[in-house]
Computed example of a mutant assay.
Amino acid sequence: MKRICILLILLFIAFNNSFGQQVLKKGFLVACGDDKLFIIDPNKSNNNHTEIIWKWVVSEAKSLPAEYIPLLKSLDECKPVMGNKKILVNSSSGATILVDIASKDVEFYAKTPMSHSVDLLPKNRIVVANSTHPKGNSIELYDLNKNEKVLFTDSLYSGHGVVWNPKDNLLYVLGYQLLKTYSLINWDTENPSLKLESSWRISDKSGHDLFRIDADNFLISTHNSVFLFNTSIKSFTDFTLLKGKKDVKSVNYYPKNNSLIYTIAEESWWTENIYMVNPNKTIKLPNLKLYKVRKAI
């Protein structure tokens, strides 16, 4: 009997470890809106059916102080990280968290006013972009091992995008009408910071989303269109597939197969639809104020 119990325990552990590794497979989508996260299999989804294989609600979170529940009522970023085992999440209601997919637990939390974007940096640190709020309009640096402790901050009006580029070891940051780059300073110490290196003015206002296509190219969505920024020649050009498309809230593009995945504001700032090109389909999440979608790679 004792051997059977031990075997069952080992099988349970193995199942959960396997689940954590496999639930967010490459090509799957992570979507967020209201107080919910979803993992979707796009290959089994179409205009009439959405294949949801994992769902998380803020109220399910363990190890999260109760005061954070109202700060997570409007999720607006959900980036897969750490081998697609965890998800970095922002809420414009005032918080940033790290969710473990297998356990559904929150492993990091911080109060981040009107936060709209977050990305993972070397040495288990993250950077958050905060939008228009009396305590926002900034980027903030954190260590994932130190809840709520701000390590560094800098001003950024209407912060909406932060993306790390490992090729040039620079952080790219999107504000209302500016694209900036920062380098990492004192990164091997307990007091790291960021140094502003460059700044470019965008030809449109209200930057919404920043996406890294590859080591040399980024997409920037604004109020009136979507632009391509090349890091080598430091120039903005129209992104043909979404030229003139207004209020794109999230954009993901993969040039190898000309695949595009995006969300666009259709009801005020939100939508119920995920749009895909190559393959062409619309994935619906009815009764959800959906903001962004990301693809596991």
Rank of each mutant, 00 (worst) to 15 (best):
D143M: 03
R212C: 08
P166D: 13
L228K: 15
T282S: 07
K79C: 07
S63V: 00
H116R: 15
I126W: 04
P279A: 08
L241T: 07
T153I: 08
L178I: 12
E67M: 03
V277I: 15
M276R: 12
S63Y: 06
G83F: 01
K2P: 00
L29K: 08
S18F: 08
Q177R: 09
I87E: 02
C5N: 13
S93P: 02
K281S: 13
F239Q: 12
T271H: 10
S158L: 10
E266I: 01
T153V: 04
V99G: 06
K205V: 14
K234S: 06
E140V: 05
I13K: 12
V293C: 05
A215K: 15
L179E: 08
K44N: 14
V162N: 06
N145E: 14
M1W: 07
L29P: 10
E272H: 12
K281Q: 15
E140N: 04
I297M: 12
N145P: 03
W56D: 04
L228G: 03
T189D: 14
K256I: 09
N252Q: 14
D168Q: 09
P279V: 11
P65F: 01
A14C: 12
A110N: 05
T189G: 12
V162R: 04
T50S: 09
S131L: 00
S18G: 04
Y254P: 07
T181P: 10
P113M: 05
H208F: 07
K79D: 10
L29S: 10
L37G: 14
I39G: 11
E148P: 07
Q22P: 00
S206I: 11
Y142H: 05
K249L: 02
S74M: 03
S193H: 10
N217I: 05
F152C: 05
I101P: 00
P286T: 10
P42M: 09
